[in-house]
């Protein structure tokens, strides 16, 4: 930033990414003590203004919420009864899915049949949202390795970014040796049986990522990195999205048809499972250590 340029707010600079542009700046910040302030001591007049604003704020928000509650209750009590078969929500769309979904898609679970075929585009967008969320969190928190920093600086960085415990808890390790295989097996069962029983890509991905997180917590980052390095992580989640997009594009180009519909559920199911699993595990790993 040149001197002649107009001085912008520090907050704006930080949002634009000018403040934390490289490592040195961050290290400098890490040495500083925490910048906590006492509001009353700082600037009395401004502080008092702030406090009075917050007092009125509490009252106004409570009032607003109560008004909203009254309006909502009034609306809700005039809805059709809970569990009424003749309610307008149970219209011909759901009738179509229930009566013809089984023979057209070959999937007993009407929910899976619906979200992966009839509403496949919706779910494709959903997978893209997950992919982008993982990428966005990676942009914010990614701190790869310890390349090009001295040992002292590494210690400083570790204080904030590395939460890995130094020693393993014996109880957690022994328990997870028993539990993790069963969790993963159940996840795979939900993934593959999603066509004919409750489950499907989303649930299975969540369970699998739960198993991975437990494994990571019990045995540490090095154990997980042996089979899920950053390269493999990126590969799996990109591959999932590509399989989904490819299968769906093929389905559209070949003009659908009942014979084809019954075959696209399984690949899409697995693809969604891969994306969800990698996203959830990526969140945890980035939060814990700043890298995959």
């Amino acid at each position: 930033m040149t001197k002649g340029k107009k001085k912008t707010s520090a907050f704006v600079e930080w949002v634009n990414g000018e403040r934390n542009s490289h490592l040195k700046a961050e290290l400098h910040e890490a040495h500083e003590p925490r910048r906590r302030i006492e509001i009353k001591l700082d600037d009395e007049k401004q502080g008092n203004q702030l406090l009075s604003f917050f007092k009125g704020y509490h009252f106004l928000t409570t009032l607003l919420c109560l008004i909203l509650l009254v309006i909502f209750l009034w609306v809700v009590l005039s809805l059709p009864n809970f569990g009424d078969p003749a309610a307008p929500t149970n219209n011909e769309v759901s009738r179509e899915y229930l009566v013809y979904g089984m023979e057209k898609t070959g999937s007993e679970n009407a929910v899976t049949a619906m979200i992966f075929t009839y509403r496949g585009f919706d779910t494709l967008g959903e997978s893209c949202v997950l992919f982008l969320a993982a990428s966005a969190v990676m942009m914010l928190l990614y701190q790869p390795g310890n390349r090009g920093v001295t040992a002292k600086e590494r210690l400083e960085l570790k204080k904030f970014y590395d939460l890995e415990p130094r020693s393993r808890n014996y109880l957690v390790t022994q328990m997870s040796k028993v539990l993790v295989p069963f969790i993963m097996l159940y996840g795979l069962y939900v993934l593959i049986g999603g066509e004919n029983s409750p489950g499907g890509g989303f649930s299975a991905g969540a369970i699998l990522s739960g198993g991975l997180i437990l494994y990571r917590h019990a045995f540490g980052h090095d154990a997980t990195r042996r089979f899920l390095s950053e390269r493999v992580f990126t590969f799996i989640r990109t591959l999932g999205l590509c399989i989904y997009a490819g299968v769906f594009a093929m389905y559209i180009v070949l003009q659908g048809g009942d014979a084809l519909t019954s075959h696209i559920i399984m690949p899409i199911d697995v693809a969604v499972g891969m994306v969800v699993m990698c996203t959830m595990y990526g969140f945890y790993s980035l939060f814990m250590k700043g890298e995959i």
């Binding site: 149970n90 759901s94 229930l98 009407a110 929910v111 959903e126 029983s197 989303f202 969800v276």
Partner: peptide
């Protein structure tokens, strides 16, 4: 809504509406 073969013709009388479940399933993950 786990539709069985012999019930599929009158499925509307046996199963709940699958649409809200599907929408919420994706919503939770987002």
């Amino acid at each position: 809504p786990m539709v069985e073969d012999e019930l599929a013709r009158q499925a509307v009388q046996y199963y709940v509406n699958p649409i809200p479940t599907g929408l919420v399933l994706t919503g939770i993950v987002v």
